[in-house]
Design a protein around this nucleic acid. Structure first.
Lengths: 135, 135
DNA sequence: GTAAACCTTGCCCCCGACGTCAACGCCAGC
DNA sequence: GCTGGCGTTGACGTCGGGGGCAAGGTTTAC
């Protein structure tokens, strides 16, 4: 299988595959004419990469999964290193979500305060944000 | 006030201030020697920028707020354009949070499945210790 | 036989918000 | 007058994940 077919079957581009090879993430054998040659195992590796990327993994974070598969394990996450990446990712996601929710609360508070200031100019000037910051 | 003092008082860097000026976001008057000259009003504008950035606004999104203040309004969000940015940002944050939560759920699912597979595999390789009552 | 479709390497480009020099000007203190 | 610490502009680097193009070689289809 050549690069174009692999790219199409995995739903990505040839440019991406060359990039992965450049990172050493998905090296390719070469045919006599210099063309990259892939097999079904490579397709499996590539699908693992794409699946993880879809969930928000960086390419480097997919490396343990790919190496785990390449080592002959049935799943990319059959190895301890992969599980550790899962754990780190979960913590990272939790942290990110928490920060976004806090930002959301702050923006919502500012927004409502601003709307109130616009609507009731003559009313009070103190910002009553006691209940606004709560969900 | 010169650039170093302003940067320090706003908790940012001179490089950032030159960048903001380059964007036309925070233009500076010039002293006779070519040095940038700022006043307290600029500090106010800069603080608005920094505050919004802290909540996740891009620099371009802070522009309506800065212009609102520069137009003489008491707050950066006293103008309709700023309120619209608030609304867009809230929607954007909600969307982002939702996507992250879904990603989190997917990763958690994969993780737990992988852990179960690992434990199950270990159990199948060795006689299962189902008799928890004995130890 | 030749055109289309594929492949190769190599290079620059993008985004955002600056960081990091380099090479120079200006000014205060001693 | 000299040192150190400010300031100036300009240019290039960073990070991730590739996109896009050029100039060539290869294969495939008609």
């Amino acid at each position: 299988m050549r690069i174009g077919e692999l790219a199409e079957r995995a739903g990505t581009t040839t440019r991406a595959l060359r990039y992965y090879e450049q990172l050493g993430l998905l090296p390719a054998r070469r045919a006599g004419n210099g063309y990259r040659a892939y097999d079904e195992a490579d397709l499996r590796l590539l699908r693992e990469i794409r699946m993880l990327q879809d969930v928000g993994f960086e390419l480097e974070e997919t490396r343990p999964f790919v190496e785990c598969l390449r080592a002959g394990h049935p799943e990319g996450d059959s190895c301890q290193a992969s599980l550790e990446v899962y754990e780190r990712k979960l913590a990272e996601l939790d942290d990110c979500i928490a920060r976004l929710r806090e930002a959301r609360a702050r923006v919502a508070g500012q927004f409502e305060r601003a709307v109130r200031a616009r609507d009731g100019l003559a009313a009070s000037e103190q910002p009553p944000r006691c209940e606004l910051t709560r969900e």
